[in-house]
Design a protein around this nucleic acid. Sequence first.
RNA 1: GGAGAGAUGUCCGAGAGGUUGAAGGUGGUGGUCUCGAAAACCACUGUGCAGGCCAUCCUGUACCGAGGGUUCGAAUCCCUCUCUCUCCGCCA
Length: 424
Amino acid sequence: MLDIRRIRKNPEEVKKALEKRHGDFPIDEVLELDKKRRGMLTEVEEMKAKQNSVSKEIPKLKKEGKDAKSLLTEMRQLSDKIKEMDMEVKEIDGKLKNKLLHIPNTPHETVAEGVSDDDNVEIRKWGEPTKFDFEPKAHWDLGADLDILDFERASKLTGTRFSLFKGAGALLERALINFMIDLHVVDHGYMEMATPFMVNRDSMIGTGQLPKFESDMFHIPSKDYFLVPTAEVPLTNIYRDEILEEEMLPAYYVAYTPCFRQEAGSAGRDTRGLIRNHQFDKVELVKFSLPEDSYDELEKLTNNAEEVLQKLGLPYRVVMLSTGDLGFSSAKTYDLEVWMPSYGRYVEISSCSNFEDFQARRANIRFRRKDNKKVEYAHTLNGSGLAVGRTLAAILENCQQEDGSLVIPEALRPYTRGLEKVEK
RNA sequence: GGAGAGAUGUCCGAGAGGUUGAAGGUGGUGGUCUCGAAAACCACUGUGCAGGCCAUCCUGUACCGAGGGUUCGAAUCCCUCUCUCUCCGCCA
């Protein structure tokens, strides 16, 4: 959520920043509602002030035995009027809030302007696309041939876009989770968390999934809970409605959760394999930061995620999302894209974003400055560290051998009971 | 799922229609004292919103789990909901 005071003060600056997203956002309507709201607020507060002062006089009059009848009648009318105006203010408040909740974050000034992912900017590259002197298999074929992935039966169990990991496949999935968490905890100083896999509506609003993107979420109607689309939601909302101490910041958290997404808008895309499922595993990194440090923290966070790929020996590149591809809540995002031989291109495997105070404002996450005691919104960041299913797919495709076997990256072997190779 | 109890400021805990933003304690900050510390004593001590040439300052207003209601006036009375705790049942 954008700061209404910022919009009020610099409407042109906000409009200009949002124009880069190439959408139509109701800034003028917001301004109008805001003006109306403040006008009514001033009026009704004056009335309330009168009501309060008179209400203090009434018991005195009564004590003195004076008649307060006419005053009471007057006050009754005032009271009714106040209630009426309170309702109107509340209605306007609701409208205003709703409008604000649907307006995306303003991109950071360093973000490249563009209309789609074609305009993303490559920042750096690590390794070279894997070369094979044989015809490499796609991971879904290799997984089936090695009998470690079974998409047919997953589809029988639930439906399309679900996976069943078998034997070494399940072991690899679990090994990757543990490997990633350990790396971030031990080497990068994150605190491990195990969170609920369902969250309530307030949490989903806090991180920006709702109200705009409800159709992509799995919903439990009986409790109005949502299956988490990413651990970002529970992790970030840990401090919803709290005021943190400055010394706590920056705070780093890592959690593994399965992620549940309807993938409503992507019918027909990436239908095979592990790339786009309704349920997938992910290790997520979340940071709470001082506003002045958040862009440094973004660089570090991105490096932390990159290190997973480096340790696994998977070629990748880092791209900065253009304004056309930038997520709703994000001010700046780096995507990590891993080389996927079956696609013949780099495929997103991590997304690292700085939300500045956009989520914090929605979720009401603040901190108190040590020197002047002032309360400010914290900055929140997150990044995949990494998407586990896609990492497994990348390992299958990049580490496959001519004889159809799979060589497990060395870094993973402490987590696979020493298993070095998967063969048929 | 059944029965009961509860939800107040950093925390603990009073308050039971009217000078209550809320007693008392605790924690925190500043000060006195001290060579220093502790102790003791004194003072201060929340958040949101609006306004005041938006100013670490002032004024108004709101906030005692959430949302409604009664009333001139509600932390206090009524209704609904949520959550927590205890006991029983069930269960990984």
